[in-house]
Design a protein around this nucleic acid. Sequence first.
DNA 1: CGGAGACGTATAGACTGTCGATATAGGCGG
DNA 2: CCGCCTATATCGACAGTCTATACGTCTCCG
Lengths: 108, 108
Amino acid sequence: MGQTNLLQGTLDLLILKTLTLGEMHGLAIARRITQMTKGAFEVKPGSLFPALHRMEEAGWLSSEWGESETNRRAKYYRLSKAGRKQLKAEEEEWGRVSVAIALALQTT
Amino acid sequence: MGQTNLLQGTLDLLILKTLTLGEMHGLAIARRITQMTKGAFEVKPGSLFPALHRMEEAGWLSSEWGESETNRRAKYYRLSKAGRKQLKAEEEEWGRVSVAIALALQTT
DNA sequence: CGGAGACGTATAGACTGTCGATATAGGCGG
DNA sequence: CCGCCTATATCGACAGTCTATACGTCTCCG
C-alpha cells in the first residue's frame, strides 16, 4: 500500500483545472498541482505523461513544443474547447460524488 | 464509458461505514449504500463481492452464514476491530483528499 | 405442483489507470 | 568534460471496477 495514492479519476480533473491558468508544460503542471493542493498530491511522471497523452488523444488538450523557463525543450499543453467542456463535466461529477460521500459519512 | 462509475477507492470506505449500522449481508450493504447516498452510487454485485472478500482477507470484516429476512441463505458481515481502525483511517484520508481537491477547484 | 421470477452469492474476463523503475537528451556549472 | 538537474517518455506490474454469466433456493401464482 503506497502512501499518498491519489484517487483514481481525479488526476484528469486536476490537470484540466490547472490548465485554466494558462498553457503549461508537463512537469510544471505536476508542480502546480502539488502547490494548489498544499502538498496533498504529488503527481509522478509515470502517472502524468500517460494521462496527458490520453487526454490529448481524447481531444481535450493540444500541445506544442517550446522552451521552458530554464531553456529546456518542453511540450506545452493548452486546454481545447472540448477540454473546457470536459472540465465542467468533471467538476459537476466531483460535486455529486463528494456530496454523496459526505452524506454517507455523516449518517449516524 | 459507464454512467455512474464510482470513484475507485471509495467503495471500501462506504462498505465500512455501512457496517457501523450493524451486521448486514452483501446485497443489503449495496442497497444501503445506494440509499445513504440518495441514489448517487449503485454498487454492482461484480464490484461488491470481490471487495467484501478482499476486505475480509485483510481482516477488516468477519462473516457468518445465516438467513436473510426473506429466508434465503445469506452471509452476514460484521466490522472487526481492525475494520473500525481502517474506517477511521479512510475517513481521515477522504477528508484530506476532498479538502485538497476543493482547494484546487476554487483556485481562480 | 410446476414453472417464473426474485433473492443472494459467486466468478471470469476485459479494461483502465496508477506506480516504480528506467531511459534518453540537452543545458548548466565547476 | 563530467555530473547534475530538467523534461519527456515508456514498460511491466498491479489493483480495482464493470459486464456478463452462473447457480441454488425460496415464494408466489396459475
